[in-house]
Amino acid sequence: MNITVRVWRQPHADAEGQMVSYEVPDVSEHMSFLEMLDVLNERLTMEGDDPIAFDHDCREGICGSCGVVINGVAHGPQQTTTCQLHMRSFADGAVIDIEPWRAEAFPVIKDLIVDRSAFDRIIQAGGFISAPTGTAPDAHAAPIPKNQADHAFDAATCIGCGACVAACPNGSAMLFTAAKITHLGMLPQGQPERDSRALGMVGQQDEEGFGGCTNIGECTAVCPKGIPLETISRLNRDLLGAMLHGSR
């Protein structure tokens, strides 16, 4: 198949960017989306053009490095990571618009690469259980009901790709933060720091310049791991609880 891509090109953080069109002939439907970009980049390199910069690493949908907005949808038409999207999802002759995640807290570094370090700082603000190495009791000391463990796991599958923010009309990071708060809050080990975790992480999220959640649900609709919207309500519960307890 032959396609045209229109890609956001921006040489560096402070430069003006723009959409640039490239024809990509002879695309195999079995190529992954990123392999299509690889092929284009090989050609650009040989033509002396700067290849398109994009983040990617594991290419099996788990590391969370990749992610671009494809035709206005974070990660494109399938609810999966960009690396797991294949060209068979597009029609011959398609014109595909490719843009970086857009959010105040995710500044563009180059082309399709954005800075997502805000996520790390949200985790630093409480997204952990304080369990210094060597202090742990036996793993069977505290049984955890299976359904609780499963719920915690569902939330823990978040890969931190940032699609939720890119899709959110408010540029909110609530689904990301909520996934971590739900993961740790569902487990008995996570209880002692539950209040401080909610206050810390949400506070940091606001400080990073993410927007507020209006429960629209675009985040969960593009989330490659299908983190459910309920996690956000759990976060809200923990947060209100923490505010009422007057912790911090």
Binding site: G72, D97, R102, G211, G217, E218
Partner: peptide, 28 residues
């Protein structure tokens, strides 16, 4: 106003596709 800033202003994505979102309701 915070959301407007957070999403990166009114001209967020250049593409004219998917302006209606993936699943969002008219009410939202």
């Amino acid at each position: 106003s915070r959301a407007h800033k957070a999403r990166g202003g009114s001209k967020r994505y250049q593409t004219s596709k998917s302006k209606l979102g993936v699943q969002r309701s008219y009410a939202s």
